[in-house]
């Protein structure tokens, strides 16, 4: 139950960004392609060199080990990448003490219209849409306290888009996790509510 606060986050394409998300708060981000939306999310997750500070509740990013920060402030990129052979191998390892609870995973799978047998499937046989949905489950299984989502419903059919939206919304409400969501879809923003910002000319502006 922590808010997410950006304080002067800056990267090459963007002027310093100040933004505050309450616990469970939802903010949509849009802007022309190449305007630096993805780069902003990457900067918050500390994946690219950037200046500024991010607060998760009362804790600062700079005082936290990078691996822990990325586990707690989860980024879901537009294109999912996989490093092991099967789906199951990608889920958080009980040994590391991160979210060993597989019943969560089963619940998520069910919610997105997938069975638990997909855990044994090899990554190579997944469709783009399946990968996208499983990447979300992979992210939620590490129980992030804040979500950074980058066009996560872009490759999905309407049914699955609704399912994914529903799952994210449930997670946001139940865990009171702030969600920063890059989306081009005005209907999606209308469906889910929340505040909207747009990046214009390197500046973050509120959108009515």
């Amino acid at each position: 139950m922590a808010g997410l606060r950006l304080e002067g986050i800056r990267h090459s394409l963007l002027e310093p960004v100040d933004l505050s998300l309450a616990p469970g708060g939802l903010v949509f981000l849009s802007g022309p392609s190449g305007s630096g939306k993805s780069l902003l999310l990457r900067a918050i997750a500390d994946l690219d060199p950037n200046q500024g500070e991010v607060w998760l509740g009362a804790e600062t990013r700079s005082a936290m080990a990078p691996a822990l920060w990325r586990r707690r402030v989860g980024l879901l990129p537009a294109e999912s990448a996989w490093w092991a052979e099967t789906v199951g191998e990608h889920l958080p390892d009980p040994e590391t003490g991160v979210a060993p609870d597989r019943s969560d995973v089963a619940h998520y799978l069910n919610h997105l219209g997938l069975g638990t047998e997909v855990l044994d499937w090899s990554i190579a046989r997944l469709s783009t849409g399946e990968r996208q949905r499983l990447a979300l489950i992979r992210l939620l299984a590490q129980r992030p306290e804040a979500l950074l989502l980058d066009e996560v419903t872009a490759n999905l059919d309407p049914t699955n888009r609704r399912r994914v939206e529903g799952l994210i919304d449930d997670y946001r409400r139940n865990e009171e996790a702030p969600v920063l969501w890059v989306s081009h879809d005005p209907d999606q923003r209308a469906r889910l509510g929340g505040r909207s910002f747009v990046i214009r000319g390197g500046r973050l502006e509120p959108e009515p």
Binding site: A45, L47, P66, A67, L68, R70, R71, G74, L75, P77, E79, S80, A81, W82, W83, H90, P92, T96, V98, R138, L139, Q142
Partner: peptide, 15 residues
């Protein structure tokens, strides 16, 4: 070539 998978592991909380 493996930029995607490497960064995915970092995002999953890996060192």
């Amino acid at each position: 070539e493996s930029r995607g998978p490497i960064e995915a592991r970092l995002l999953a909380g890996g060192t």
